[in-house]
């Protein structure tokens, strides 16, 4: 049987508050398994324990109880982090470095040789669309550009697992779409992705499976199609038919005691409309 990419077993995290008797229970008996190549979305409102979960997986903080294994290995070993790339929430990185210098710094930390890192940096700058801004300092980057360079640094050492904490927070819709496309292309290479977000539409579009955290507890988990499907309803979208045919169809449904819940023209999403309009203007 294949080892899960990430296995979180019965993890509880309690933060003691100095000089007070009160303790903050950030996570309670959390169990998670993420299969290799899967995109897993961790959802939850602010303060639900998403970032704490990610930090525990990365070994940045220690669980009070429980354990985390990455491809079967204890996550407290440094070697495990060779397999993981991480994009923190709202990261600003070193503002005084250029895009290329930032990637070179992270390449060195990941143990890449100078020749390998040179070609990898050029490749990643191209992938995230920052080739033209490669020599500009990060202090001049927009929020979206910072997220893209952040994604590039997370991918620099070709990790098997990508951990993304709110990757599109405060990014405009076009930037958000670019990042979503980058996530989708990473999946094609077999990368396992753990994504934390409270942007539900985004999660719905890219994730295979989701877990919903609330007050430190995993209250729901499963495949998206299973969780979102309404069992007693069926949806189909047709084109090139006449209104008469649709009326006839409705009558046939009624004849077998069925009920048409909704009949309307399909609508595009506001995001799609925004992207279409802004792209047309750019051209």
């Amino acid at each position: 049987m294949t080892e899960p990419a990430i296995r979180v077993s019965d993890v509880t995290k309690i933060f003691p508050t100095p000089f007070r008797r009160r303790r903050i229970v950030a996570l309670q008996h959390l169990n998670l398994e993420i299969a290799p190549g899967e995109i897993y979305g961790l959802l939850g409102p602010n303060g639900s324990g998403k970032s704490t979960t990610l930090k525990i997986i990365l070994g940045l903080i220690q669980p009070t109880r429980g354990s985390v294994r990455v491809f079967g290995r204890d996550n407290s070993t440094v070697a495990v982090r060779r397999d993981i790339g991480f994009l923190p929430e709202n990261a600003y990185f070193h503002k005084f470095l250029t895009g290329t210098e930032t990637l070179r710094f992270h390449a060195r930390l990941s143990g890449l040789g100078s020749r390998e890192s040179k070609s990898r940096i050029a490749e990643l700058l191209e992938t995230v669309g920052l080739t033209r801004a490669a020599d500009a300092r990060l202090s001049t980057y927009s929020k979206g550009m910072l997220q893209r360079i952040g994604l590039a640094q997370a991918l620099i050492h070709r990790p098997k697992i990508l951990v993304l904490d709110e990757p599109t927070a405060a990014v405009d819709p076009a930037g958000s779409r670019d990042i979503q496309n980058l996530i989708a292309s990473s999946k094609k290479t077999g990368t396992t992705i753990l994504l934390s977000s409270h942007l539900l539409t985004q999660v719905q579009e890219v994730c295979d499976r989701i877990g919903i955290l609330h007050r430190g507890k995993l209250i729901r988990e499963g495949r998206l199609e299973d969780l979102l499907a309404i069992e007693n309803q069926t949806e189909f979208i047709v084109e090139n038919t006449t209104p008469e045919f649709l009326d006839q169809l409705e009558r046939q449904i009624a004849s077998v005691n069925g009920r048409v819940v909704l009949r309307r023209k399909p609508q595009t999403s506001l995001e799609q409309l925004f992207l279409k309009v802004t792209e047309t203007r750019d051209e």
Partner: peptide, 14 residues
């Protein structure tokens, strides 16, 4: 503050 520490220590850095 800049959260650089997270991306650095998430790499194989002791």
């Amino acid at each position: 503050e800049d959260r650089v520490i997270y991306s650095v220590l998430a790499k194989p850095v002791r």
